[in-house]
């Protein structure tokens, strides 16, 4: 490990050694290790292999109904994941409260539009999403509190509020309401939810890669202090990342509610770790600074296909959860080992 030790003398030979790995100035030529390569490209291979294996070995996988089902289930999680990618890239681990956010958005969409109409429901959902984003973002970005603990608290607050207000009851949309129309619309064989997922991915990919805000999220995740010292308002960067996550979770909630035209406070269980697994498997680093929304989409495909295979093989929720827990740890381990190989 090359750690910079503060040394009194300047220019210190130790530091010169630490910062000049090769004798002559220039780029150190370094072979790409297997772990690095896997961390970088592995997901493409794995996803392809997984789909191929599933098509060959799992009965019923390759049917049109099944594939449509996979996509229908993937859409809301995928929308959440592409949003949460911003939080992960900003080196703030994850936003656990997406579980509460998705359920709240779904319930608000159906319950409020039943009572007060569709437009008001959407406005209410937007306000709620902004509140989530700001509370999480301010606690993490301004008070520098740990994101996991902050979003753990907001999950409990949010779910508690939702259950308290809704009494845990299931809300049904009218069979001809706008939610139902949205949920059943198809473009050819493609459900509207998939189009929303792709649109969100493209939009957020654009935000991450082409806007100054997205650029700052990456820079902040790579080096907070260096980013601050270029004059950037780093608190706003963090708040922005959480607001984007919250807005994506809101859309994810809409799609989830529209799928079945029902909403209940418990409907988003498991969204937190499925989304995180998709992001990490996609190759976004939990160490921050590196990642891509497009690759998260690929991660979503991987996680969804994996889940579908488990469901088709008769494995229950417990097994799925175990597998995805393992997947997260394994993917992060590959990332950590690749980093180690890269810095030594």
């Amino acid at each position: 490990m090359m750690t910079d030790e503060p040394v009194a003398e300047t220019p210190s030979p130790d530091q010169a050694a630490a910062t000049t790995p090769a004798a002559e100035p220039g780029i150190e030529e370094r072979a790409v290790t297997v772990t690095e390569w896997m961390a970088d490209r592995g997901i493409f291979i794995f996803t392809a292999l997984l789909i191929l294996a599933a098509a060959v070995f799992i009965d019923g996988f390759a049917s049109l109904t099944n594939i449509t089902d996979v996509f229908n289930r993937a859409a809301p999680i995928g929308i959440v994941a592409v949003g949460m990618t911003f939080v992960v890239i900003s080196a703030n681990y994850l936003d656990l409260s997406v579980v509460a956010q998705v359920a709240t958005s779904a319930v608000v969409l159906i319950a409020v539009s039943n009572e007060y109409g569709f437009v008001l429901a959407i406005l209410a959902a937007i306000v709620i999403a902004l509140v989530y984003g700001f509370v999480n973002g301010v606690a993490v970005g301004v008070f520098k509190a740990n994101a996991v603990i902050v979003t753990l608290s907001t999950t409990f607050i949010g779910l508690g509020l939702l259950r308290w207000v809704s009494g845990g009851s299931i809300y049904f949309g009218p069979p001809d309401g706008p939610v139902r129309v949205f949920g059943s619309t198809r473009l050819g064989p493609i459900p509207l939810s998939m189009i929303v997922l792709v649109a969100m991915t493209l939009l957020l990919s654009f935000v991450l890669n082409r806007t100054t805000f997205g650029f700052l999220v990456k820079a902040y995740g790579s080096n907070r202090e260096a980013t601050r010292l270029t004059g950037a308002n780093t608190a706003m960067v963090v708040i922005g990342a959480f607001v984007i996550t919250a807005l994506a979770a809101m859309v994810g909630g809409f799609v989830l509610a529209a799928f079945s035209n029902t909403a209940v406070s418990s409907m988003s269980t498991g969204f937190d770790f499925r989304a995180l697994a998709a992001i990490i498997v996609g190759g976004t680093s939990v160490f921050g600074g590196r990642g891509s929304v497009m690759r998260t989409l690929l991660g979503v495909v991987f996680v969804s296909v994996l889940t579908n295979i488990m469901v088709l093989s008769g494995l229950g929720f417990g097994m799925q959860q175990m597998a995805i827990g393992l997947l997260i740890v394994a993917a992060v381990s590959v990332d950590a080992l690749a980093r180690k190989a890269g810095t030594s």
């Binding site: 996991v148 959860q321 175990m322 393992l326």
Partner: peptide, 13 residues
């Protein structure tokens, strides 16, 4: 966190 999910699943299984 990975352990959290894994063990919760294990408890179900």
């Amino acid at each position: 966190l990975g352990m959290l999910f894994f063990l919760r699943g294990a408890a179900f299984v």
